[in-house]
Design a protein around this nucleic acid. Sequence first.
DNA 1: CCTCCTGTAATTTTAAAATTTACACCATTA
DNA 2: TAATGGTGTAAATTTTAAAATTACAGGAGG
Lengths: 146, 146
Amino acid sequence: MHISTKCSVAIHCLIFIYEYGEKKKVTSELLSLSTGSNPVTIRNILSSLKKNGIISVKFGTGGATLNCSLEEITIYRICKTIEPDFLSKLFGIHSLPSPLCPIGKNIHSVLNYSYQKIQNDLCDSLKSITMKDLVTDYHYFIQDIN
Amino acid sequence: MHISTKCSVAIHCLIFIYEYGEKKKVTSELLSLSTGSNPVTIRNILSSLKKNGIISVKFGTGGATLNCSLEEITIYRICKTIEPDFLSKLFGIHSLPSPLCPIGKNIHSVLNYSYQKIQNDLCDSLKSITMKDLVTDYHYFIQDIN
DNA sequence: CCTCCTGTAATTTTAAAATTTACACCATTA
DNA sequence: TAATGGTGTAAATTTTAAAATTACAGGAGG
């Protein structure tokens, strides 16, 4: 199972909110059009980001705005917010090894021990990239291509 | 989507083959019982490992044996063998962002640029652990628990 | 030549992710 | 104060990917 596309959509939304949040009323409908995802999916994502304090969403009247600086929003923070146990779901593990076999009995412990290290490494990697980097890259691509 | 459970099953099989491959005839049926996975799944996994030169499987009569030293088999090599494009499938990306929106038009480039770095980091992490480590851990757990 | 095994294609089942439908509730404004 | 255009969320449905199952051809060795 991979890290959900919801994280990619969340990044897309955050760039959009950063770029337009002050000028326009950024609604779930608008983000739905830009991302190509369903408005309900967007609302669920925004709801998580809001609970984590990353954005504010005006209830009733609508519209999302950024609530903290780009440097404070790492990819790790986004993933963790959207999908709290994404790291432990990184590796699939077969659920029914035989308890009668010494290897079957211990394989979960063995795998988890090494997988934990890999998860920690991935965690560091995800923490090293922030929305600041992504917005900078976005501006680079905008200039370059258009 | 996560990294397939087939990788965990492959590691299970390799420990089994290392421990018993010389003494017993390790068949897909036997590995199926130990892992709790289907014999056909096992045969597909063994078939990949065989093509990569990690193990040998006796055709006709049956039985798998290790073909190289434990140190040479990294988790990366196993994953890559079982699921060649697992790294690029690590992050899901929404497939239909709007080409009419500047962000929608560039989001794939932006995401891939950062995701590539993360994939490289993960790659390094996966290369840092070998079957030697996993077998050592296994022996540790065996002693400890039984 | 019979038995036990591998290799692999094709189908079915299962499980997870995403979408859709539905509706209660809030703010603004005409 | 009622209409409009939003949010928040639950529940059902659809879609998609992974895994299991079924099926069978073919090799090795007693």
